[in-house]
Design a protein around this nucleic acid. Sequence first.
RNA 1: GGCGCCAUCGUCUAGUGGUUAGGACAGGUGGUUCUCAGCCAUCAGACCGGGGUUCGACUCCCCGUGGCGCUACCA
Length: 536
Amino acid sequence: MQDHHTEDQDRRHEHLHLSSLPAARAGEETPRKTPVTDSARNTSKPVRVRIAASPTGKCHVGTARTALYNLLFARQRGGKFILRIDDTDVQRSTTESEQGVLEGLRWLGLEWDEGPDKGGPWGPYRQSERLQLYQRHAAELVEKDRAYYCFCSPEELERERKEALANGRMPRYSGRCRALSRADAEARRQAGERPVVRLKIEPLTMSFTDLVKGRIELDASLMGDPVILKSDGVPTYSYATVVDEHEMRISHVLRGADHTTNTFVQLQIYEALGFEPPEFGHFALLLNPDRSKISKRTGAVFIGEFRDEGYLPEAIVNHLALCGWNPGTDQEVFSFDGLQAAFALDQCSSSNAIFDRSKLLWLNGHYIRQLGVEELTRRTLPFLAGAGLVPSEPPAGPELERLKAIIGLEQERLKTLYEAPELVTFFFRDPDPAACLELLKTDRFARKHTPDELKRALAECAAALRELEDSSWTALPLKETLEGEAAKLGWKPPELFMPVRLTVSARQATPPLFETLECVGRSATLRRLLAVAGAP
RNA sequence: GGCGCCAUCGUCUAGUGGUUAGGACAGGUGGUUCUCAGCCAUCAGACCGGGGUUCGACUCCCCGUGGCGCUACCA
């Protein structure tokens, strides 16, 4: 009897441990019939991974990173990447609110193979559209006596919880309704009461081998019986996820570390349902700069915000990849294909990482410099149009050529697309002469001479420059002319070049002066020089 | 409170008993240069604390401490 009980427990225990390595059982007398190793299972099933997104209306960086890791894993194994909407929280979920999440992922280039918008063999891909499935399995669990109806009221539960806390005990469900007979439960349901369904937790010492964190253990006897179906018939997260992972043939559940502990409840649900659990891997979380849980309070955490701030999707993907994973080499810059080749779960960090903005900014600048001028111009267009510098319909012909020249000049000083309008405005609009004059008084090079001397010099420059025809208004002749003027004045080059720069752009930093003048154009340059030279 | 996970420069991290503890971003300095940016060079900067184990610990073990997570009819 005793033996039988032990063996029974042991067997169940084993079932819950399918993912543990056989080595952990070394010395066991009777070897398992078919010892299953992680690697054996990995190759025996087609790889299907998923991102389970809450329809919160926005795509969170954490969600994006998890999606990326899943996608990379799927692609390198020739598997499928599935997008599922976990919208069982009726309060927060609206039909439109999933749109933001989809947009964010898509903008990053993290395209899914199956999802709510494109269907697939195991849909629907919204949990709210699968309620009957959960309810059916829940009824089976009650039938099999692995779950039971619980009629305890939320108030009652809350009171017990507080009481336990006050007495320093762990708050967990007492299991009172376990004792209810099936007949009583049925009668009360007929009478109109709306119970929840709770899973009967087996008080086992459990463990599983996490693909990124290694072996993790937990004593299930410390858990209370969890609700799997709420009184309104909607499943709880842990339960719905188990049913879906199974029904959708998910082979590897790769998700955030906030789900590590939940995994044990889920393993018990798999066991109760008679489903073989998938592999699990939990990624360490992304944190705020103060090491607190990441939140919208502390700056941008949504993909859409980064897009609006002029970040490139490839920079974000690259940075996200490096936040929690490393290639084991000194390489920092990765294309998506490069990531796909290098990514590995066992190189993923198991300690939390701060989402570092400055490194992202550097990467963004790097990718901007890498882009062809044509492509960079195309991507910058929406920002320029937003600032009213160019019409919203894409320019063509000479207009486009000029725009490309301008963007080309600013390319290596651009860290985000968002900065573009501010940097290039002066190519399109004359600056305020008064503002230029102010700068002439404070700039460290211009300061070498009095405002009157400067105005005279600018007027002379204008006169000299006027001699250049439109056709020879290019960097080299411009350089020769202005160098000649500086020599004539007996000034060091910067003492003249800087005032010219300030006069033409009202900015202390611009691309190289002569290329800049070329792009600003003959008439605008002369007009601006004269405006400041003749300013009061 | 209980349980789980984690702990190397400011940040992301490499490192698996013996290393000048390496790289990248950010910061400092210098060079290139008409400014800025870029590029190049260079400097500074870390093993949470305490006990063990060991000839020898960043590395292994234990205890603290700290962070994060879970402990819901949220996901």
